[in-house]
């Protein structure tokens, strides 16, 4: 095995361990931290695969923005400790059954379609992951999906602002309302 493959395998192992840790941790802060390390190690995988742009975007968007907000909300609400008993009974049993089914499926695929997995994928060009290439693809070939995604995000933002405004008079903006409340 090449050193690169060993590194890839090791990081892959870390990805799996952090993912499992996220699910089984009983403390929401620890779960969030496991998820952050998971995102970061996945970014390392992208880096090894020659896509530095995607790797850095993964870190700054998922680890840097979304998870910070998650952590923020968990701390603000003081919801670190999860209830010892789950509300939805039988989740674990279902998860084990589905997991076994998935593993069997994976094994069968490996046995029957062994040739498919050994066919080497042609290596991508060195510039394929460069920001110029990604930008070009986004704004030409995938312009419509890009615009639609942007529109959906805009609608979500407007929705979030609308939800936080509540029933307050329309003339009063959020910051004056908060400062008046806090005195």
């Amino acid at each position: 095995m090449l050193p690169g493959e060993i590194l890839f395998g090791f990081i892959g192992l870390v990805v799996v361990i952090t993912a499992v840790g996220m699910v089984i941790s009983r403390n929401a802060i620890y779960s969030a931290l496991f998820l952050v390390s998971n995102f970061t190690t996945v970014a390392l995988l992208y880096l090894i695969l020659g896509a530095p742009f995607i790797a850095v975007v993964q870190i700054s968007v998922y680890a840097g923005s979304i998870m910070v907000l998650f952590l923020f909300v968990i701390m603000l609400l003081g919801a670190e400790r999860l209830a010892a008993k789950e509300k939805l009974q039988g989740q674990r049993l279902l998860a084990v059954i589905l997991g076994v089914v998935f593993l069997v499926e994976l094994g069968l695929f490996g046995v029957w379609k062994a040739g498919y997995m050994t066919t080497p994928v042609p290596p991508a060009a060195a510039t394929a992951g460069a920001p110029e290439a990604v930008g070009m693809a986004l704004f030409t070939q995938y312009a419509l999906p890009f615009e639609v995604t942007g529109f959906i995000l805009l609608v979500a933002t407007v929705g979030a602002i609308l939800l936080t405004r509540g029933d307050k008079p329309a003339s009063k903006d959020l910051i004056t309302a908060v400062s008046e409340k806090e005195g």
Binding site: V57, S60, G64
Partner: peptide, 24 residues
């Protein structure tokens, strides 16, 4: 790096964790 500036933005965005966790 061909993404040098983006690297700086990414590192800035994860530097929040230490402070938030210290407080908590």
């Amino acid at each position: 790096l061909n993404i040098g500036v983006l690297y700086i933005v990414a590192v800035t965005s994860i530097s929040v964790y230490g402070i938030a966790l210290a407080g908590w």
